[in-house]
Write a protein that binds this DNA or RNA. Structure first.
Lengths: 204, 204
DNA sequence: CGACGGATCCATCGAAGGATCGATCTTCTG
DNA sequence: CAGAAGATCGATCCTTCGATGGATCCGTCG
């Protein structure tokens, strides 16, 4: 019996491409989902062996949360994360949530086929380019508080401390403290560097 | 005789998706290209009616340059630009280079089919979500000098004025001048806002 | 309970960034 | 050639940022 798959991606074209590539290899695509919510619902009905899930899913829950939901259900599928760019922190979070591995979307089709059989067999899956992942795991883990994350997002948008203070209804001095903590945790010298680093790590 | 197409995208999965969607509608995909250079070479041989071209093509020349090359050849094809996100400035530049229009990659498959027939007939093509484009056209056009662009990139990476000066072998005062010009042209109050705005407009 | 750590909050002050003047030099173009 | 535009540098002044130190609140855990 062939391996049964669920495809999760918010782009119809990517879904069509994955389906085309996968079916040509003799696998059985039992359904496609355009969102994480849809994927969880479909999986609980169809119980696929493997789920291919994009990390970024537009509006609703992201690939990490989808993975967590899928893996917490009975008879959980193996989840392979697909990602366009290397968003280090997000990938690590997906693995922590129970993903069997991840693939960059620009890999050759053979790699995808191999990943599917590997994952269905219970093995872990990694793309050919896992240097970034190693870096992310090796790098001291950054845990930001919710408040710090809010400030970080506004820093990335180019807001001044005063503007952030007004938006969050706190004193400018408080914003500065959060910013200082961000700079320490990210190991950067200034706010614009913090924004760049945060994007590089996939924190925002 | 059916419309003959060339697909240009650096992701095998996207190419497979486009081919699948397009062929199902009865169009004729004569070739796929993974890079702009490859696309130009194939087009000069095969003379497709329509080229579907991704805006971001990895290593080599980007979609804008590919469009310009394709349109400057004899018997130029209609070029439809595909883009994942709305990178305003880039899209405008592609249109200036002779593209027949652009589509967001997350559109429904029917929209793509309609776009192909429209483009083959010589019409212009626009996605359903062209508010951004209108904004970009309405916004006073930002033309950055090469030097300003270099400084802008480093500002986006979080470098201080002093660091930028050292990297470019110029005085810190000169960097400040460039930064001031950037802030004026982008209409923003500070350097981190400049980085955010530049990314929003697709300038970097 | 009482100690502890984390999160949130605030004030002060030197350093860096940004605004505003000015200027010379090169290159390109009408 | 005259003029425009870009790149380069300097001095001044003011604002914002970032570093430092300390405060309060709250949940956890021994």
């Amino acid at each position: 019996m062939s391996i049964r798959l669920l495809i999760v991606d918010d782009h119809p074209i990517v879904r069509a491409g994955l389906r085309s590539v996968i079916e040509r290899r003799g696998f059985d695509v039992v359904a496609e989902a355009a969102s994480g919510e849809e994927a969880v619902a479909l999986a609980s009905d169809l119980h696929p062996d493997v789920v291919l899930c994009d990390l970024r899913l537009g509006e609703g829950i992201d690939g990490v949360e989808t993975t967590a939901a899928l893996r917490s259900a009975p008879r959980p599928p193996a989840v392979i994360i697909l990602t366009t760019f290397d968003h280090d922190a997000q990938i690590v979070r997906a693995l922590e949530a129970g993903a069997a591995g991840y693939l960059l979307k620009d890999v050759a089709t053979e790699v995808i086929a191999k990943a599917i059989t590997d994952a269905a067999a219970g093995a872990l899956v990694f793309g050919p380019d896992d240097r970034r992942l190693v870096e992310a795991l090796r790098a001291p883990r950054v845990e930001l508080t919710p408040r710090e994350l809010e400030v970080l997002r506004r820093v990335d948008e180019g807001a001044s401390n005063r503007e952030i203070a007004a938006q969050l209804f706190i004193a400018e001095a408080t914003v500065k403290t959060h910013v200082v903590h961000l700079l320490e945790k990210l190991g950067v010298p200034g706010r614009s560097a913090a924004a760049a680093e945060a994007r590089r790590r996939g924190l925002i």
